[in-house]
Computed example of a mutant assay.
Amino acid sequence: MGFFGSVGDRVVGAPSILAADFANLAEEVRRVEAGGAELVHFDVMDNHFVPNLSVGPAVAAALVASTDLPVDAHLQVMRPDSLIPALVEAGVASIQVQPESTPHLHRTLEAIKNAGLDAGCALSPTMSPSVLEYAWPYLDYVNVMSVSPGFGGQAFIPEMVGKVRRLREMTDLPIQVDGGITEETAPLMVAAGARVLVAGSAVFRGDRAARMRGIVEAGEGALGPA
């Protein structure tokens, strides 16, 4: 069973290292782990699918070697298939792709799963969940982007709460949310059905451990009585 198969109904903190201090990445991850982080979100951007250019398999391998936390790679690139083998070799635990970035989504997801990793799809804000209608058998999780892909520090898009709610009606797979996640927005997403909270700027602009813990606890507060 991969990481996402173990999520269940608990709230998971997943810091996005896009907002971290890259000169001290290993220490940054140790700090958020002290705040209860269970997963590291790793954005790969190519300056084509999105305007930004970030990190790739070499940095992923260094990160995997420096932490016991699973690393979840989010491919915001035009040719995701070309990066899958190198990220598998780097040791990431899961890979998610944007459905609009690949002409053969089934083939892409099968390549990830055949390598023994969890496979996910990330939905841009205006992309309907219906695009996944025939992809469910090949998915282990879904990421609802609550900002446009490409940059950290963007404002939360409130309509994405309803999108999470709609996805929860469609699937029992774990729902991850990414973008503008704070102590204020985390409860909204958890109440709608999300369980994996990706947070970047809200975590890495302050006391890393305290901010990670605060977001997870705020999300847990929306679960209601056990």
Rank of each mutant, 00 (worst) to 15 (best):
F3R: 07
G5P: 01
S6G: 05
S6H: 14
V12F: 01
P15N: 12
L18G: 01
A23T: 15
A23L: 11
N24W: 12
R30C: 12
E33A: 14
A34C: 11
A34S: 11
A37R: 04
A37M: 06
H41S: 01
V44A: 13
M45D: 14
H48D: 11
F49A: 05
L53M: 11
V55D: 01
V59F: 14
A60F: 01
A61P: 08
A62F: 03
S66C: 05
T67P: 11
T67S: 13
L69G: 02
P70W: 07
V71G: 03
A73C: 08
H74A: 04
Q76I: 06
Q76F: 07
Q76R: 00
Q76N: 12
Q76S: 13
V77I: 15
D81A: 13
A86Y: 06
G91R: 07
V92A: 02
A93C: 11
S94F: 05
I95Y: 06
V97M: 11
Q98T: 03
E100N: 08
P103V: 04
L105K: 02
A111K: 11
I112R: 03
A115S: 11
G116S: 12
L117M: 14
L117P: 11
A119S: 09
A122T: 04
A122G: 15
L123G: 09
M127Y: 00
M127T: 14
S130T: 14
V131N: 05
V131T: 13
Y134E: 14
Y134F: 15
A135M: 13
A135I: 02
A135W: 13
W136D: 12
W136G: 10
W136F: 15
Y138H: 15
L139I: 05
Y141W: 15
V147L: 02
S148P: 00
P149C: 07
G150F: 08
G150P: 07
F151G: 00
F156Y: 13
P158M: 13
E159R: 15
M160R: 11
G162P: 01
K163F: 10
V164A: 02
R166M: 10
L167M: 14
R168A: 10
E169S: 08
M170Y: 10
M170W: 12
M170E: 14
T171Q: 07
D172F: 02
Q176V: 13
V177L: 05
D178G: 02
G179L: 05
G179I: 08
E183P: 01
E184T: 14
E184H: 12
T185K: 08
M189G: 04
V190F: 10
V190K: 07
A192T: 10
A192M: 06
G193D: 04
A194G: 05
L197E: 00
A199T: 13
G200K: 04
G200W: 00
S201E: 10
F204N: 02
F204Q: 01
F204I: 08
R205K: 15
R208T: 02
R208V: 04
A210M: 07
G214A: 15
G214E: 06
A218H: 09
A218N: 06
A222L: 07
L223D: 10
L223Q: 04
P225T: 08
